[in-house]
Design a protein around this nucleic acid. Structure first.
Lengths: 211, 211
DNA sequence: TAGATTGTTAATCGATTAACAATC
DNA sequence: TAGATTGTTAATCGATTAACAATC
């Protein structure tokens, strides 16, 4: 088992990936930690320190090859493989995510939508069928699912999460406004939109008070 | 001007608010930092340290009054006032957010949707009209807008953000997949969904590799 | 009053930044 | 080779945890 890498570092990796992708699009071939630090508004030291958690991707006197580093970070983030995704909760948010095609380019493929609302049964979003929750066991028997996106209201989310884990799901992208209590081997990533909005609100109020 | 409070602390405040709200719903009158720490899986020390950034809300030998603390954190987060919001980008994500009524309960009221796509002109979501971007100056002249939600694709987002700031917007909730370069007095809160998904992906891959 | 628990200071831990020897 | 820039160790800074005196 490799040494544990702090979540602070992990959180920065997608941002590096994004900037390197832009550099690649701009036809930039090599970049030094210093140049990159100016663009990204972080220290060059942090960039080198972060990358060296995963390996020595650079070369003294030269810097980093953009293409190579981009691909390596992609691999670190698991973007070199396909992730099959189901969306549990086919309301507005679930449908919006299902319609978002950019994820697919990165290997995140939505293969099914699920809901409890019978009014949605048989409908589909961008060609992806909406199933009822009771079809889930059969669905998971016949195909691999790597990630379940949880976009149910919080009253239904806890129970659905437990069901998902019971059926063998090991990764949940949780949009419900609660902390899921699940076994340790289940990976959960939370998107708490209202927390984010409150943070914004705090910063607005503070700016006004400071004046 | 009060002393600067770290963003690490701010990020935790909405979570305290959520747990206190649940306690309130459960009819709990008082709670000690220790009891709360068990529920929230953080240290009691951190709770007391965090809260004391804003004031002494507790009482020795008693703990914290749930109702009182809930309200005080609400005030800190600016939930005691109304925030008028416009959504710029009336695609799937914009419409999903406009349909999400829970924000309204916390004082975040969406008063208009904007887009550049003429096909959407005149339509409305949950009674909120979709305007064209060129109506924005007039709209902002006639009513107060505190927050602009940016749900445009990244190619259009930068320009729209500049326009918004030019027209007097000081707070942006940014869902576009880029870092906005805006003046210091503009508050930006980012929701980078693909970053979040990549973090999840990283943790999935790592768990598999560890085995 | 005695017991409980805060508010706050001090100690520890971890993350960031600086410095520089290694090396391309 | 000389110059540039990494990889990595050491120093600093900030955040978290522990401890305890203050006090309800």
């Amino acid at each position: 088992m490799q040494k544990e890498i702090s979540q602070a570092v992990i959180r920065r990796m997608p941002r590096y990936y994004r900037y390197l992708g832009e550099l690649l699009d701009d036809g930039v071939e090599r970049i030094s930690s210093n140049e990159l630090s100016v663009r990204m508004k972080v220290t060059a030291s942090q960039i080198r320190q972060d990358l060296n958690n995963f390996g020595g991707f650079g070369q003294q006197g030269y810097g980093y090859n953009v293409q190579y580093l981009y691909e390596e970070i992609g691999k670190i983030l698991g973007l070199d493989r396909q992730h099959n995704i189901i969306v549990v909760g086919a309301g507005n948010m679930g449908q919006a995510l299902a319609n978002y095609v950019k994820f697919e380019k990165r290997g995140f493929v939505i293969t099914g939508l699920f809901d409890v609302n019978p009014a949605l049964a048989g409908l589909s979003v961008r060609g992806i069928e909406i199933h009822m929750m009771d079809e889930l066991p059969e669905f998971l028997k016949t195909q691999r699912v790597d990630i379940a996106v949880l976009t149910l209201p919080k009253e239904k989310a806890e129970q659905a999460a437990e069901k998902l884990v019971e059926l063998g799901i090991h990764a949940i992208w949780n949009f419900a406004h609660l902390d899921l209590e699940l076994p340790d081997d289940v990976v959960v990533e939370n998107v708490h939109l209202s927390d984010s909005l409150m943070q914004l609100s705090y910063n607005i109020v503070r700016r006004q008070d400071d004046k």
